[in-house]
Design a protein around this nucleic acid. Structure first.
Lengths: 213, 213, 213, 213
DNA sequence: AATGAATGAGTCTTCATTCAT
DNA sequence: CATGAATGAAGACTCATTCAT
């Protein structure tokens, strides 16, 4: 195994470990054991405990950037994109699976803790995270702009507000799930999607056909 | 100074301290110094470090419950309520001031960390937090139901979805602020509010013309 | 209740407490709670924690002195005295009951620990304890001397050795009981008594005499 | 220095330390200093303070088992064995020297405290200790049985009682020494031995061979 | 006579980090 | 490359004792 591969492996495993274990409360002994190496080995590849954590979080950010920005489909019909997005649980699972990290990393609750711990230690990560959100919102705005052009949604749509609304709602829904331990977004996500859609869509024809009773 | 007063004081000060300092990383030495007492005094009133933290978080939850549930105005016009709510920054500041805790407790970024740290340590707090969110959404739903009756908003409004949407958006906006360190919600909050309102409001007269330019 | 009475009560209760609880491991808080008073009250009557312990142990020594020395029957037939003594368990129980302290103080295991802890802290107690053993052995020797006079036991009996033998055996039997948690002395005590008696008694008649000068 | 050697060394030195210092009152600082290592080093080899103590006491029990059970001479004339045993002080010293532990471990006073402290903390040690006593008594009983066969002692000897008598006396003599700080057993031990012997021996013949000058 | 709040020195324990091998 | 023994600073917690009331 090439040296670099070893380091890569360690980062990947460490990320999985940190996803399910609180960084502050994990001793290097625990970590080393979980990674199947000795403490010395870790110090061989990383400057210190923080360095390993930093590398792990960055690996996670790479993945999220790939998923939410680079891999964001931009030539898909807006309605379809939104429908997909608002099946929040499926989207998260899909992302987790495609990432190749275990399911521990998929669980938003874990990611939440991971990010907050990381941001507290490494404020410079804020910038990377910000880029990801900005990128995501940009992609969404692009698709909406196209939808306006195509006459799918109203011309007077406040695109910036709506992308922000969607992004914030997304995060908030996951956060509420973390707080309350109930995934209400599974049921309510699509209904919120419908509500938002009705707010921007151009009515097919006459009148509003009572989208819900 | 009465014993009870002392304990109360300690809880209050500890809450302020924990709002700006990470619980795990704060040594009892730091805490004691910040509270202006000796370690021994803390152990006189609290079983251990966790106990003090638990009491502090509960005090915060009391406050939030009072603000977001008990003090929630229920006979206010919906539009007015939403306008108020979506001036997120002002609402948070107002709540902070009314609480009597310092501004450290007002800052949502701090509360975020506080809650996540607390939930990790004391899973039973999840229930209290859940009650608060449920209470808040219930109050919101009540006002919306009345607005429906009064013909202010559409009869086919998916009240449950919209209240969830608002709550999650609220949390998400604050969380994004925490992540990115930018309070976009100051500008975008009201615009999102307008978008949501247009989605549920009954058009003043014929056709939906240019609710926003 | 007179002040002195209070102090007396405290000493008595403390003795019972120390009989079942290790002194070193008992905090003054525990002790105060067990005695049903506050720490302050203890400091009112005793100089410090050690002082209370010292008083308690002395009270126990008073009791033992009364039982093993002062109340030792000296005009009883030797055989009867020995028979009584070697029913070790009954003797200990009887002593405990007569003492008025609870049964915790009766249990030799507890006394053992108490003495060792006390001797370690207060070496001067050794003298008192020594006096008690000396007194006991003296009383025993007196009875044996009389038995020699009366022709009950052999004239060449090494009285000093036999009293020492009995005393040491007694302590040793109790100590073994403490170590092994089995009261073998209940069964074996009387048999040892018989063996010792046969060693000193004058054979009723012919028998094998003159094996000793 | 090999790892195992280091741990062994620590156990051995700790035993010597605990022999002369009360476990409860010894801080890990004291212990570490006495062993010539840092506290951290101790925690490297032992789970905690108790663990080190436990290992030390077990090492002592190993030694005692070796001495009092395994190394007990079984084909020696009973009289000689008893004579040896009842020179208590010499026996204890010999054992101490042969053990290789320092003289602190030899002193029965110390062993006493050690055992009681250990039994209080680790009740399971009682079993080991019990085995040692049982083994010792068994060996003694074997030798006595042979002596009966060879016509050296009386057939009606209550072997079980006598071995118990000897064992308990042994312990008791040492305990009295601990309590009173006087080694009376140096003088009285042999005299008690003579008394016991006269109780079981078969008179050689008519003559009085002066067991005592 | 009695309280109990408050202290601070001391306890056991953890852990990131270093370093000789 | 990798080990794991060893360190030492820092952590949470205990408790005998004091003192104002």
């Amino acid at each position: 195994m090439q040296p670099n591969d070893t380091k890569e492996q360690l980062v990947k495993q460490a990320l999985q470990f940190f996803a399910s274990n609180d960084y502050e409360r994990s001793s290097l002994n625990d970590i080393a054991e979980a990674l199947g190496v000795t403490k010395g080995a870790i110090y061989h590849y990383f400057k210190n405990k923080d360095d390993l954590f930093y590398a792990s979080v960055n690996r996670l950010l790479d993945m999220m950037e790939g998923w939410f920005v680079d891999a964001m489909p931009r030539d898909i019909p807006l309605k379809k994109l939104l429908d997909n997005l608002f099946r929040i649980d499926e989207t998260m699972t899909e992302m987790g699976e495609s990432s190749g990290f275990g399911e521990a990393v998929t669980d938003y609750k874990n990611i939440m803790y991971l990010f907050l711990a990381a941001l507290k230690k490494f404020p410079d990560l804020r910038e990377r995270l910000d880029d990801i959100y900005t990128g995501f919102r940009g992609a969404l705005a692009d698709v909406m702009a196209k939808a306006v052009e195509k006459g799918k949604i109203r011309k007077d749509t406040d695109i910036e507000a709506v992308t922000y609304e969607i992004t914030a709602f997304y995060e908030g829904a996951l956060l509420l799930g973390t707080f309350t331990n109930r995934k209400e977004y599974i049921v309510l996500g699509p209904r919120v999607c419908a509500a938002i859609w009705s707010q921007i869509a151009i009515p097919a024809s006459g009148g509003h056909k009572g989208r819900k009773k």
